[in-house]
Design a protein around this nucleic acid. Structure first.
Length: 283
DNA sequence: AAAGTAACCTGCCCGC
DNA sequence: TGCGGGCAGGTTACTT
C-alpha cells in the first residue's frame, strides 16, 4: 500500500505524537511479523525505553530509541499505524472497530496513549536492531528522491546504466527509494513517457522532465497526505484519508479516458502490476 | 541479464 | 445468494 508520501505522512504523525514517550509495555498478537530479534528480546528491550525521534528511509519507518536500538517498520501492502491518545480512546476504539481483528501489535505508553500496528494482509515487517548495525536492506536502498543527493546528473547516470524499462527502474528500491505503483504510473503519465521505454534510451529532455516530475508529484502527494483509494486501505495515524487520490490522473482509472486527450486509457501488466497508459500521450 | 511468475495473506468486487 | 476468479499501495525467490 504505502509509498513514500504515505509513509512520510505517517512518520510526521509519529514525530508529533511519540517523541519522548516512554513505552510501558508491548503486546504481541502476531509474532511472525517481528523478524528480529526473538520475541522475548524484542519485548524486554522495548519495555521502559524512550522514543528519541522518528525518521523515514524509502518506505521504511525508523523509530530511534534511547537504548542504542532502532525499531524499523515496513508496512507492506496493508500495514497501518493507529495512535490512540489517552483522552479519546473510546471514540477511537469505535472508529477502528471493524479492523480490530487485524491488530497485531500494541505499544502502551506511560501516559496512557497507545500505538497499534494493524495489517490485514500481514506483509508488513518489524525489526529492532542496534543503531550501528543497520538493516542490510536499508543500506542498499537507492537515492532518497527528495534529498539533495538526488541530482539530475546522478539520476541521468542511473538511467544510462539500465537497459530495463523505465517503470521498473523508477520502482527499483535499490535505485530510487520510495516510488511504488501509484506514483510510478502518475510520474510516467505526466512526463508523457511510455512505461515500457528502455531507461537508457530516453532523451535528455525526457530525463529532465521525469526528474522534475518525480519530485513535483511526491511533494504534492505529501502535501495532500498521500493517496487513499476507495477501499481506504491507507489512512494516517489519526485515521484520516489522504487526498492525493482526488487529483490522480491515471492510476486505478479503469474504463476511463485520458484527462489530457480523451482517448481511452489502456491497462497493461508490467512486472505483474497494473499499469495505466494513454497510448496517445505516452510515447 | 532482463523479465516473468509465484509466494506471502485477506478482503472485496465482478460475472455467472 | 453463492461461488470462483481476479485483483489490491510490496518484496523476495525462483524460473525462463
Amino acid at each position: 500500500m504505502p509509498e513514500l508520501p504515505e509513509v512520510e505522512t505517517i512518520k510526521r504523525g509519529l514525530q508529533n505524537e511519540l517523541i519522548n514517550k516512554t513505552i510501558e509495555r508491548v503486546q504481541i498478537k502476531t509474532p511472525t511479523l517481528i523478524k528480529m530479534p526473538r520475541i522475548n528480546e524484542f519485548l524486554s528491550k522495548l519495555q521502559n525505553s524512550q522514543i528519541i525521534n522518528v525518521k523515514r528511509r524509502g518506505k521504511y519507518i525508523i523509530i530511534n530509541i534511547n537504548i542504542d536500538y532502532q525499531l524499523i517498520i515496513h508496512l507492506g501492502m496493508s500495514g497501518r499505524l493507529e495512535f490512540h491518545p489517552n483522552s479519546e480512546k473510546e471514540n477511537l476504539t469505535k472508529k477502528y472497530e471493524k479492523h480490530e481483528k487485524h491488530n497485531h501489535l500494541y505499544f502502551f505508553f506511560e501516559d496512557g496513549s497507545e500505538l497499534i500496528y494493524n495489517d490485514v494482509r500481514k506483509f508488513g515487517k518489524l525489526w529492532l536492531l542496534r543503531k550501528k548495525k543497520n538493516l542490510s536492506r536499508i543500506e542498499t536502498l537507492g537515492y532518497e528522491p527528495l534529498s539533495e543527493e538526488f541530482t539530475l546528473h546522478r539520476f541521468s547516470k542511473l538511467l544510462k546504466n539500465s537497459t530495463k524499462n523505465i517503470k521498473k527502474v523508477l520502482m527499483d528500491q535499490k535505485k530510487i527509494a520510495g516510488i511504488g505503483n501509484i506514483y510510478a504510473n502518475e510520474i510516467l503519465f505526466q512526463s508523457r513517457i511510455h512505461p515500457l521505454r528502455k531507461a537508457n534510451l530516453l532523451s535528455k529532455n525526457e530525463v529532465k522532465l521525469l526528474f522534475m516530475n518525480i519530485q513535483k508529484i511526491l511533494l504534492e502527494a505529501i502535501e495532500l497526505k498521500g493517496t487513499t483509494m476507495v477501499d481506504e486501505s491507507y489512512i494516517d495515524l489519526e485515521g484520516n484519508k489522504g487526498r492525493y487520490g482526488e487529483v490522480i490522473k491515471v492510476y486505478g482509472k479503469k474504463n476511463s479516458i485520458c484527462p489530457v486527450c480523451g482517448q481511452p486509457l489502456e491497462i497493461i501488466r508490467i512486472e505483474n502490476r497494473s499499469t495505466f497508459v494513454c497510448p496517445n500521450c505516452q510515447k
